[in-house]
């Protein structure tokens, strides 16, 4: 790309001219922009940053612990499997369930027949 058409050379010359003859105000703004970018990006790590980070992490841990301890204790879960199985057996035997519900009645009835 060393040999260009004349119009390409003209374009490149113009671009170089623009680069060389930059306005003083623009140059000053560029300088400030460069310094700001360097300041922001290369800001030295302060010695207090690590202790601050550790203190923050500790505070967050303590807060989460305190919240966990203050939560109301959930009731112990019922033995779902066993009670569920028992309930199922009772439901399956509809007649027996009825018998259990009227147990007192049947006991009384039996007593009556014995007395009679």
């Amino acid at each position: 790309m060393n040999e260009h058409a004349p119009w390409v050379d003209a374009v490149l010359r113009q671009l170089d001219e623009d680069e060389l003859h930059c306005d003083a105000t623009v140059l000053s703004r560029l300088n400030r922009a460069r310094q700001q970018a360097l300041d922001a990006a290369l800001r030295p790590h302060r010695a207090w940053r690590l202790p601050m980070a550790l203190a923050g992490a500790t505070a967050a841990l303590l807060l989460s612990l305190a919240l966990t301890l203050r939560m109301p204790q959930a009731p112990a879960p019922l033995p779902v499997a066993e009670s569920g199985a028992e309930d199922f057996e009772l439901l399956a035997a509809g007649a027996e369930l009825e018998l259990i519900e009227n147990l007192e009645f049947y006991a009384w009835l039996e007593q009556q027949s014995l007395d009679g």
Binding site: D18, E19, C22, V26, L30, A33, R34, Q36
Partner: peptide, 28 residues
């Protein structure tokens, strides 16, 4: 590179302030 960067940015966005902002952002 900053002057050429500004020229390139200005050709792309037109406005000088926008171009300067782009150059600063790119440096950062």
């Amino acid at each position: 590179v900053e002057r050429r960067a500004l020229r390139m940015a200005r050709l792309a966005v037109g406005d000088l302030d926008d171009a300067l902002e782009l150059v600063q952002d790119s440096m950062l």
